[in-house]
Amino acid sequence: MQIFVKTLTGKTITLEVEPSDTIENVKAKIQDKEGIPPDQQRSIFAGKQLEDGRTLSDYNIQKESTLHLVLR
């Protein structure tokens, strides 16, 4: 499925993911596309910070959902 990741600069990245993917996985995909190390990424969805060990389905993130990426 496709999800979108919006950065603070307003750029939107499209990722191909599975509901079973962990947040860690997703951060690795963002690193592949953007070169941002996962330890600098904070992902926010529906106002909640997403934890690395959880999966997209844990957070009820579905296709075409938009995550927000904040850098630390």
Results as ranks from 00 to 15, higher is better:
residue 56 L to N: 02
residue 1 M to I: 11
residue 49 Q to M: 13
residue 32 D to C: 10
residue 57 S to P: 01
residue 39 D to A: 10
residue 54 R to K: 14
residue 65 S to A: 12
residue 23 I to R: 01
residue 63 K to T: 11
residue 14 T to L: 10
residue 24 E to W: 15
residue 56 L to V: 06
residue 71 L to V: 11
residue 64 E to V: 00
residue 52 D to Q: 04
residue 49 Q to D: 14
residue 48 K to N: 10
residue 69 L to W: 03
residue 70 V to I: 12
residue 26 V to P: 01
residue 2 Q to P: 06
residue 54 R to T: 05
residue 44 I to L: 14
residue 63 K to W: 06
residue 48 K to H: 11
residue 53 G to D: 11
residue 53 G to P: 04
residue 71 L to H: 10
residue 36 I to M: 08
residue 18 E to P: 05
residue 47 G to L: 08
residue 50 L to G: 02
residue 17 V to S: 02
residue 25 N to C: 08
residue 13 I to G: 00
residue 60 N to I: 01
residue 1 M to H: 04
residue 42 R to G: 14
residue 57 S to F: 10
residue 50 L to E: 02
residue 15 L to A: 01
residue 55 T to D: 01
residue 20 S to H: 11
residue 65 S to D: 14
residue 26 V to T: 02
residue 47 G to S: 04
residue 68 H to C: 09
residue 37 P to V: 08
residue 17 V to P: 00
residue 15 L to V: 07
residue 46 A to C: 12
residue 30 I to K: 13
residue 68 H to Q: 10
residue 67 L to M: 05
residue 49 Q to P: 12
residue 9 T to Y: 12
residue 55 T to I: 06
residue 60 N to R: 06
residue 11 K to V: 09
residue 32 D to V: 11
residue 9 T to G: 13
residue 47 G to Y: 06
residue 1 M to K: 00
residue 7 T to A: 04
residue 26 V to F: 04
residue 45 F to M: 05
residue 58 D to R: 00
residue 48 K to R: 12
residue 28 A to W: 13
residue 16 E to Y: 13
residue 60 N to S: 06
residue 57 S to Y: 08
residue 37 P to K: 10
residue 7 T to L: 15
residue 26 V to G: 02
residue 14 T to K: 08
residue 50 L to D: 03
residue 37 P to G: 10
residue 41 Q to R: 04
residue 61 I to S: 02
residue 19 P to L: 09
residue 58 D to W: 12
residue 71 L to T: 09
residue 37 P to H: 12
residue 4 F to G: 01
residue 69 L to M: 12
residue 58 D to G: 02
residue 1 M to N: 01
residue 2 Q to T: 15
residue 7 T to N: 04
residue 19 P to W: 07
residue 37 P to M: 10
residue 48 K to T: 12
residue 35 G to R: 07
residue 23 I to N: 00
residue 72 R to K: 13
residue 3 I to Q: 00
residue 14 T to D: 02
residue 1 M to Y: 14
residue 33 K to A: 12
residue 16 E to M: 12
residue 46 A to R: 13
residue 21 D to M: 10
residue 47 G to Q: 05
residue 20 S to Y: 09
residue 44 I to G: 04
residue 48 K to Q: 13
residue 22 T to C: 03
residue 67 L to A: 00
residue 7 T to W: 11
residue 5 V to G: 00
residue 8 L to D: 12
residue 51 E to N: 06
residue 58 D to E: 10
residue 49 Q to W: 15
residue 13 I to R: 00
residue 44 I to T: 08
residue 3 I to F: 00
residue 63 K to A: 15
residue 24 E to M: 12
residue 58 D to F: 14
residue 22 T to M: 05
residue 8 L to P: 14
residue 30 I to W: 03
residue 24 E to N: 08
residue 46 A to Q: 13
residue 32 D to A: 13
residue 5 V to I: 12
residue 18 E to C: 10
residue 56 L to S: 01
residue 13 I to M: 05
residue 27 K to Q: 05
residue 18 E to F: 14
residue 17 V to K: 01
residue 25 N to F: 11
residue 41 Q to L: 14
residue 71 L to F: 08
residue 62 Q to L: 10
residue 24 E to P: 03
residue 42 R to H: 15
residue 42 R to M: 15
residue 7 T to I: 14
residue 58 D to C: 04
residue 63 K to E: 12
residue 19 P to T: 08
residue 70 V to H: 08
residue 4 F to E: 03
residue 22 T to D: 02
residue 9 T to C: 13
residue 65 S to P: 01
residue 5 V to T: 00
residue 35 G to D: 05
residue 33 K to C: 07
residue 13 I to P: 00
residue 38 P to Y: 14
residue 38 P to Q: 12
residue 41 Q to E: 07
residue 9 T to D: 14
residue 57 S to L: 10
residue 38 P to E: 10
residue 21 D to F: 06
residue 46 A to N: 15
residue 23 I to Y: 04
residue 1 M to T: 03
residue 34 E to V: 15
residue 32 D to Q: 13
residue 47 G to C: 09
residue 36 I to L: 08
residue 55 T to L: 07
residue 26 V to D: 03
residue 12 T to W: 08
residue 56 L to Q: 02
residue 50 L to A: 02
residue 38 P to S: 14
residue 25 N to K: 14
residue 19 P to E: 08
residue 23 I to W: 10
residue 35 G to L: 05
residue 30 I to V: 08
residue 58 D to L: 02
residue 31 Q to E: 11
residue 10 G to V: 01
residue 51 E to Y: 06
residue 62 Q to E: 10
residue 47 G to K: 05
residue 17 V to A: 04
residue 49 Q to H: 13
residue 56 L to I: 10
residue 66 T to P: 00
residue 24 E to K: 11
residue 66 T to V: 13
residue 7 T to M: 14
residue 38 P to L: 15
residue 63 K to C: 05
residue 14 T to M: 12
residue 35 G to A: 05
residue 40 Q to H: 12
residue 56 L to D: 02
residue 53 G to Y: 12
residue 23 I to M: 05
residue 16 E to H: 10
residue 67 L to G: 02
residue 43 S to I: 15
residue 57 S to E: 11
residue 47 G to N: 07
residue 25 N to H: 12
residue 57 S to R: 12
residue 29 K to F: 05
residue 1 M to V: 03
residue 53 G to N: 13
residue 66 T to R: 03
residue 2 Q to I: 15
residue 4 F to D: 01
residue 71 L to Y: 11
residue 41 Q to I: 15
residue 6 K to C: 14
residue 12 T to C: 12
residue 38 P to V: 15
residue 41 Q to M: 15
residue 72 R to N: 12
residue 29 K to V: 04
residue 53 G to M: 10
residue 72 R to Q: 12
residue 72 R to P: 12
residue 56 L to K: 01
residue 9 T to Q: 11
